[in-house]
Design a protein around this nucleic acid. Sequence first.
DNA 1: CGACTACTTGACAAGGATCAAAGTTGGTGG
DNA 2: CCACCAACTTTGATCCTTGTCAAGTAGTCG
Lengths: 245, 245
Amino acid sequence: MLTRHQSVDSGAARNQSSTPDHATTALARTHARAPLVEQEWPTSNWRLIADKAHLYSEGDPRTHVYKVMHGALCLYRLLEDGRRQVIDFAFEGDVIGLGSGRQESCSAQALTATQVSGLPMATLMAAAKTNTRIAEGLYEALSREIVVAQEHLMCLGHRGAAERVATFLVILSRRNEARGLACDVVTLQMSRSDIADFLGITIETVSRTLTKLRGQGLIEIEQITTLRLTRMSKLVALAEGRVRV
Amino acid sequence: MLTRHQSVDSGAARNQSSTPDHATTALARTHARAPLVEQEWPTSNWRLIADKAHLYSEGDPRTHVYKVMHGALCLYRLLEDGRRQVIDFAFEGDVIGLGSGRQESCSAQALTATQVSGLPMATLMAAAKTNTRIAEGLYEALSREIVVAQEHLMCLGHRGAAERVATFLVILSRRNEARGLACDVVTLQMSRSDIADFLGITIETVSRTLTKLRGQGLIEIEQITTLRLTRMSKLVALAEGRVRV
DNA sequence: CGACTACTTGACAAGGATCAAAGTTGGTGG
DNA sequence: CCACCAACTTTGATCCTTGTCAAGTAGTCG
């Protein structure tokens, strides 16, 4: 049962940064991550997933946990009528496939040619049994995943399109920041359709909303896939519902 | 970082039922739960929470994990502008407060006078360190919580009011079933406002939708707080998006 | 260069939100 | 036991946002 890109670390050194564990803003902790316990991760077992190919699908036996070495993935679930809910995106360094269910709860599709490193579940679980710190790391990774899911819920629960799109941009920015990248420029590795299905709106609304945000000077659209977040504070205010469009 | 009512069990005997781990329907596994490891749970440390009182609030230090002995709780988070997202409801037998963050990520408010039994986090974590089965149980409890959150996301992502309300009713029915209660009669321990904030719609829409479902013979409203789910199969079809209002 | 795909924009309609009011329910005190 | 009150729920009317359908534009790949 799992989906999120989280680090599997010992947790012993977590939260030494100044960021409080429960930050005041809804998005502050999103995707906060601690360094991986690298020695636990195999350097073999790499897999290359072609553009738009699936690493696994909903219902597949859960055999491995994967770390994204390069590229990006989209984690989604389908409704019977074909509608799709994007649960999350996984970028370089993220770990996906955690969880105890015997089958994957989401499908994982590459947004571009993507390289992952797989760690067999059995290996991970055996390690967790003998090493308390790994067990703690797993527990904390899942905990963070739950918080992320909660914040996604906050985003989808009665909120307007502008707030949703702003939230999405802020999330990407924060994840950039967590990986040491610029936080004011986000590269959209996913299509408008992926964004729409993540936010529970249509691609037309995504497009219109981006245009509107640009019109108000909150963002600049450098390329289709590259946005500059001018006025981050306004975006955050929008995302948190403190301000109207 | 945690919210959900899940059992903390050894996990060793899980999934012996005929229910596949990854069921075909989106809602099938929701709230599936295994028997608790009762001997791990203290019989002391009980607390009575008055009607509408809070067991804890978002941001409080996370000191205990609680099991609901009697009554029901509403777990929610607030947006800055006062809007509220109900993350989940906790009923008798559910465990809430799991997660590794040092502070609660949700507020827990009693829907009625509620009795809980608290287990100090430190005790639980110490037990998990020495007992692998408890550690596994925690891991599985969080995993299930993530699946529940994902299904909640599916419910809130682009779906109509009727589908949301149907989903809610099916969830309550399944949770009844899991606790050995009748699955065709659900008792709403929460207000319309709580339901609305759980589903991301307004109380008026909840009310209208229930009336509409009654008009189509999918439910009967015996009292305000008691619904009979006639035609469960249609409700499930609605919840899964296989059918229109 | 042309065909294909993805994105943007426009016009219109549908579904919910909002505002307003009437109807229920449950609790309190006479 | 009943009457009244406050809180909650239902219903109605209208407005607004977003979804839908359709057309046009831009970017990509052969």
